[in-house]
């Protein structure tokens, strides 16, 4: 049971971070379907940094902070490609996002293969000793429960997101740009700037989320599979959470239980006795998300102006 809790919290943290990333972007009016790609780039940067800092012998606590910052920065940098095309060039946001998803996997494969100097896109970031920075340093024990530092980041991020969105001038302005950009512009808010901010924030959260998905759970990662649809699942979490931080956290927990079962079903006697193949459990979060969306989407309320490029000149 502790194992189920461990993985549920792990995936809930990932989904919350990434879905809140999507939330900031969509609240500002930009559909961010590129979350999957942003996660890949963030995760790649995270594990590459782990190996670099490991080799450099950086102390573990500093290394943890630095790698998380690097993952967020990489995500932000990559998301700026989306921001540029969607905001400045007024491109179709869904297509731009799809392109970035494809590009991310290709880039990650090329980089991973070159780092390995071989045909394998698998990067290893675990070592036998805990004295130097590696994947196991990101977890810690609380009694029988294994937690990881990304959970702390997530809790802080939820609080910060709630505060920013509902209690700051910036948050109000951001939401105004997603609802009615013309009105926002008329009172002197720079819509382009706010949307850039929204997308970059989603990049930071998505990048960290990508690392949170890859690093604490396993010691090596095959970048051929990207992040296995986790970014898209986060989109469903965001919709289910109605673009609100606290609801998103709740929705993420719900989906995370399903996702966690794929990891540990064979160690739970009841599930193991069913004898279902692993793929069924892999499928579950996606099926669950469709069932949920089917029932909730009729009264779902997306930010009104999302997906519509803002053109100062148009009326």
């Amino acid at each position: 049971m502790w194992l189920l809790l461990k993985y549920t919290l792990l995936y809930a943290a990932v989904l919350t971070l990434v879905a809140m990333g999507g939330m900031f972007s969509e609240r500002s009016g930009v559909i961010n379907i590129a979350l999957e790609g942003i996660m890949v780039i963030g995760g790649l940067m995270g594990v590459v940094m782990i190996n670099i800092l490991n080799a450099a012998g950086v102390p573990v606590p500093i290394g943890i902070v630095l790698t998380i910052i690097a993952a967020g920065a990489a995500g932000a940098a990559y998301s700026s490609l989306l921001a540029f095309s969607a905001i400045n060039l007024k491109a179709d946001q869904t297509i731009g996002g799809t392109a970035l998803n494809l590009l991310a996997t290709a880039v990650a494969m090329v980089i991973a293969k070159r780092i390995n100097g071989s045909d394998s896109p698998k990067i290893t970031y675990s070592t036998n000793t805990n004295a130097v920075l590696n994947s196991s340093n990101f977890s810690f024990q609380v009694g029988p429960l294994t937690l990881n530092y990304f959970l702390l980041v997530t809790i802080a991020a939820i609080a910060a997101a709630w505060f920013i969105l509902y209690r700051t001038r910036f948050g109000m302005r951001l939401m105004a740009c997603g609802e009615h950009p013309q009105a926002a512009d008329s009172v002197g808010i720079n819509v382009y700037k706010m949307r850039w901010a929204g997308v970059l924030m989603s990049g930071v959260l998505g990048g960290i989320g990508g690392m949170a998905y890859i690093v604490p759970a396993v010691g090596d990662w095959n970048f051929e599979m990207g992040v296995a649809g986790m970014g898209f699942l986060a989109l469903a979490v965001m919709i289910f959470g109605q673009w609100k931080p606290l609801n998103i956290a709740g929705a993420a927990l719900f989906f995370a239980v399903f996702r966690a079962m794929a990891n540990i079903f064979d160690s739970i006697p009841f599930l193991a006795s069913l004898g279902w193949p692993k793929e069924i459990y892999n499928m579950m979060p996606f099926v669950a998300s469709m069932v949920v969306l089917a029932f909730t989407s009729r009264k779902s309320r997306a930010p009104k102006a999302e997906g519509v490029p803002y053109d100062k000149g148009s009326r």
Binding site: A91, I95, A106, K113, R114, G117
Partner: peptide
């Protein structure tokens, strides 16, 4: 392949779609 991973071709097609997204421009 030792020097140049095959996925460089995927990068090219990824860039092409990214550009297509604003090809209207």
């Amino acid at each position: 392949a030792k020097l140049f991973p095959t996925e460089v071709a995927d990068i090219i097609s990824g860039v092409v779609i990214y550009l297509c997204a604003f090809s209207l421009l």
